[in-house]
């Protein structure tokens, strides 16, 4: 009687601790977008804007975006074919529908199957998360547009979009 009880307690303790650790790690990790990196992605994409994490859009969006770099939101952002291919591979492999990250999965789930958004700000997830932001805030000089994540999300470049790291500039 005594012995099975000890084993049961032990099993429970180990199980609970393991579960706690796992859920703790999972919880922390899920708040932060997966930190995948690629030197060409960083160098090419971040010369004009923040290097938006691949986990912010699904694979089909990245493929469409990378296929139209010569007309990239009104600008020519064309790349040599080898560089474009490497970046596309990196984006696809870590995309919102493939990264396994919780926030990424929610972004992907908010997009209708037939839709291929090119702007992160077009996704229902983004709109829902920013529905309290009045249009005049987006237009402030230090913000400019929804493309400027790190204007408010101070750790955006580290993939951290948590609410406690938001500071809206005046």
């Amino acid at each position: 009687m005594k012995r099975p009880m000890q084993i049961a307690v032990l099993v429970f303790t180990v199980g609970a601790t393991g579960g706690l650790l796992a859920s703790g790690g999972e919880k922390e990790g899920s708040k932060i977008l997966t930190q995948a990196s690629n030197a060409k992605w960083q160098a090419e994409c971040a010369s004009c804007h923040m290097a938006y994490q691949p986990g912010l859009l699904p694979e089909r969006s990245w493929r469409k975006l990378m296929a139209g770099l010569d007309k990239h939101f009104g600008e020519n952002a064309s790349l040599d074919p080898a560089t474009a291919e490497e970046i596309t591979r990196f984006l696809a492999a870590n995309s919102a529908d493939r990264s396994g990250n919780r926030r990424s999965a929610r972004i992907a789930a908010s997009i209708p199957a037939a839709a291929v958004p090119l702007r992160i700000s077009e996704t229902a997830y983004f709109r829902r998360k920013h529905d309290e932001i009045a249009s005049d805030i987006w237009r402030r000089a230090k913000v400019g547009s929804p493309a400027n994540c790190q204007a408010c999300h101070q750790a955006a470049e580290k993939g951290d979009y948590s609410e406690r790291n938001v500071k809206i500039p005046r």
């Binding site: 004009c48 804007h49 009104g74 600008e75 547009s145």
Partner: peptide, 9 residues
């Protein structure tokens, strides 16, 4: 001087 892209970089 420092410039700025249309995407605020």
């Amino acid at each position: 001087a420092l410039g700025k892209t249309r995407a605020h970089k």
